[in-house]
Design a protein around this nucleic acid. Sequence first.
DNA 1: GAGTGGTCTAGACCACCCG
DNA 2: GGGTGGTCTAGACCACTCG
Lengths: 242, 242
Amino acid sequence: MVELLRTPGPPIYIQIREALRAEITGGRLKRGEQLPSENKLAARFNVSRMTIRESTEDLVSEGVLYRRHGVGTFVAHPHLQRDHTKLTSFFDEAEDEGVAVQVKLLGLKVIPATPKVAEALDIPAGGHVIRVKTLCYVDGVPITVHDAHMPYGLFAGLVNENLEVQHLWRLFEKAGYRVKRAVQKLEAREASKDVASLMEVKEGAPVLFKERTVYADDGTPVEFTYCYNRGDIYSLTVALER
Amino acid sequence: MVELLRTPGPPIYIQIREALRAEITGGRLKRGEQLPSENKLAARFNVSRMTIRESTEDLVSEGVLYRRHGVGTFVAHPHLQRDHTKLTSFFDEAEDEGVAVQVKLLGLKVIPATPKVAEALDIPAGGHVIRVKTLCYVDGVPITVHDAHMPYGLFAGLVNENLEVQHLWRLFEKAGYRVKRAVQKLEAREASKDVASLMEVKEGAPVLFKERTVYADDGTPVEFTYCYNRGDIYSLTVALER
DNA sequence: GAGTGGTCTAGACCACCCG
DNA sequence: GGGTGGTCTAGACCACTCG
């Protein structure tokens, strides 16, 4: 029996969720094994059944558990590579993995948006955008060129910030926009002369090209970026759900 | 006021969810606009507040609505390109877009798994897998090479099916495995001689290379596939959530 | 029929944000 | 202070699966 803190701490359903997760990752609940029924869990934790459902809901949507109507709730077989679907910034990722990331600012200008950029950012064609070009090194190797565009109207103050040390998204948050979601289009392309020389590869070498639009949680597009990643080093893992 | 069917039909919370969605897509609730409070919605639909929360929960996680504690629930600005994060089969996608897809079976064998395949499929190294190689044409143009591996133990009957007309996943379902989730690793690569000749491009042309593992809803890995997509034609859109 | 998850109720108290 | 969403209760009935 897990000790639940009725006050103040995290909500009960989160405490129960984490207790269940710990039982699974700790091996006390094995893959494929059936959980106690919701009624029994409610009794065990001394909460209502609705609260138990809230606890398991997240685990089900994460793929840790699955439910079969009329049968029971079970521990899913663990997927390898589980968490790669999360939207994280380069900085956060690198921090987690202990990799040294360096950012070199190639340029910062306020310019009128191209039609494509304007459409992605949902601003009038020709409206002002801040364009930030950076080159990203991982362990000293140039790996990514970013060509980012932000609506000038939202982030005018951004032009005075030191963009080599802090991530754009932290600045977005200062302006009241929480980054929530990104949509990326990916293609394999040949490196152009410019990109090739920046990334120190031959012209025509394969690069992973991405067009990324980043949205705040209210749906406002806050960033549209062209990314060029060295094909011989960079790979991207994504998860899709049905 | 929407007419709710108390019996039998879909659950009330789904009816309400769809009614709200219709008000949004129909423009009666505009982007950025605040919804009536949960209490008011409960009164309007004559249901309990918990049911209203269930209705809006899905819309929030879809990004259609967003909530601000102590403030209210609002209509998010619509994202362009919303639905590209869903896991769908080639066949389903093509059907929706009215594109002619043709599949040519290049080979079907039962072979011992390579270490990498075995690990992805969670079977012993050297265990038997069904290997299916196909070439996919869209509007007559060769666009994708698939090199798929399935555990022989789960899908032995599959070797007798006509794989050119029906999708693998339908056969998985016959065997009791609902496809739920896939994890893909993407890279930009140069086309090898073999792949280049199949896809009718030059050797060394950029291709989008994917390693994909497909999971059933109980977490069982059911398919591990190497995909090669023509870089000059194929692009992939994915959504990431924070 | 017994047990499971799926849906739903009619309340309650709390934390948060605003004027 | 008043309204909002966040959490929680103690029940209820239904739909599904299995023996």
